[in-house]
Structure formats: C-alpha cells, structure tokens
C-alpha cells in the first residue's frame, strides 16, 4: 500500500494506492472517493482476525464506531481517498510490532495487520486528561493513519515531557503519563489558564495536536444562535 497525505495540515486527506489483493481497514464514513475496483465489507471484527461484538462495543466506548469498513482492491493501482470528519491533520505511523496508544476518535485507517482495541486509562486519567474514558490501542505491523483537530507534531521523549490536557493524539506504549498541575501551586496553575497537564515519562514518540475540539467548541458555542 502506497500512501500520500495531501492538503496538510488544515484540511488533510489521505490518498491510498492499493494493489490487487491488498486491503485496508477504515473508520466508518472516512471514505471520500475511490476507484471502481474495490470491494467493501462492513463488519465489527478485524479483517481475518477476531473481535466481533465485544471489540465493537469496546471501540464504541473509546469514541470510535462499532463497525469497521474493509476495502479490498481487486485490481492493480486502485486509489482510495479518505479523510476525517473534522478539519485537521492526518499522520502516518509505520507500526513495526509495538503498540501505539491513540486518543479516542483519532484512529482513521490501518493495514489489516494492525489490531484495533480499546483500553481503559484509569479513573484519575479518565476524569482529568481531557481525553475520553477509553483509549484506542493499536498493535501489530503495517501502516496506521491517525487524524487530529489542528496539526499534529511529533515529540521524541526521553525522560520527561509535559502536554496540556486535550492535546494528546497518540503515544508509544513505552511512555507513561500522570496528571499533574502545570505550576508549583494548583491555584497558580488554574489562574495561569493551564490547570492540569499530562506529565509524560519514559522513552518513545509522542504525537500532539495543536488544537482540540472542546476548546474550539467553547469559543464557538456562545456565538451560535439558539435553535
């Protein structure tokens, strides 16, 4: 599978080129356009793998869809255009056998060798991380595509790193994070507008998003007319 990311970072879309027999699994509703040589299968399980209803329900808890769409090319050089529902960036992550922890709703598409599952982040993190209650856990090998609100920037963490809540897109499972205050005092942190932050530690790659939907919604909401 060959990929090309276009119109980054504000209105990104991904152009995937598949050869005959190759498959890709996409989020429901991600397909924008495609060649005629694709067969589309909608199931709740991974292609050729396990899962089913339980994993479908877990995905729903993590902010993803119960169903998955599997696109299989039946001819050479078939192109599939995919994009996220909200404006924002798309990133490509080549998985080589490890695990990537992804914020709920950021998974866009992946090769069939990648398992998509949901994982609980703990009560404290669920309440204060600014993310969903569950995270999406991607493991296996192949191409993985994630989307964000705003642009995505990678950070190589080796030691400690601080990210504001609501700005995490994904991180490698070799990293861990705790919820903490941005400054030395909680009152100072709140007055400074930062409040609580995610403090990462360990070694691995962390992907952050420049904006987040709740902040945008808080700005936009009061300006909208009531229905």
């Amino acid at each position: 599978m060959h990929h090309q990311l276009l119109a980054q970072p504000a209105m990104s879309i991904a152009k995937l080129t598949l050869q005959a027999g190759e498959s890709v699994t996409c989020e429901v509703g991600a397909m924008i356009a495609m060649s005629s040589g694709f067969t589309v299968e909608t199931t709740s399980r991974s292609r050729g793998g396990g899962g089913g209803i339980t994993k479908g329900l877990k995905r729903m808890f993590s902010g993803e869809n119960f169903f998955l769409n599997h696109f299989t090319s039946t001819a050479p050089n078939q192109t599939l255009w995919i994009g996220p529902g909200l404006l924002g960036d798309i990133m490509h992550y080549p998985m080589t056998g490890g695990t990537l922890i992804v914020q709920g709703s950021s998974w866009l598409a992946s090769a069939i060798g990648i398992e998509i599952d949901a994982t609980w982040q703990g009560l404290g993190k669920a309440l204060f991380s600014g993310e969903g209650m569950f995270w999406v856990k991607c493991s296996g090998q192949g191409d993985l595509f994630l989307n964000s609100f705003g642009s995505i920037y990678p950070v190589d963490v080796n030691g400690e790193y601080v990210v504001d809540t609501g700005h995490i897109v994904a991180f490698e499972d070799t990293l861990n994070f705790k919820i903490g205050k941005a400054g030395s005092s909680l009152i100072g942190s709140v007055l400074g507008g930062e409040g609580l932050v995610c403090k990462f530690s360990g070694q691995g790659k962390l992907y952050c998003q420049s904006h987040n939907p709740p902040s945008f919604g808080q700005l936009l909401g009061p300006k909208l007319k009531a229905r």
Partner: peptide
C-alpha cells in the same frame, strides 16, 4: 519498570 500500563520491563 514503566510504560503505559506500568508493567513494561525495560
């Protein structure tokens, strides 16, 4: 020890 779940051995 560390990682996402705290059980990973480095």
């Amino acid at each position: 020890m560390g990682g996402y779940n705290g059980r990973m051995v480095f």
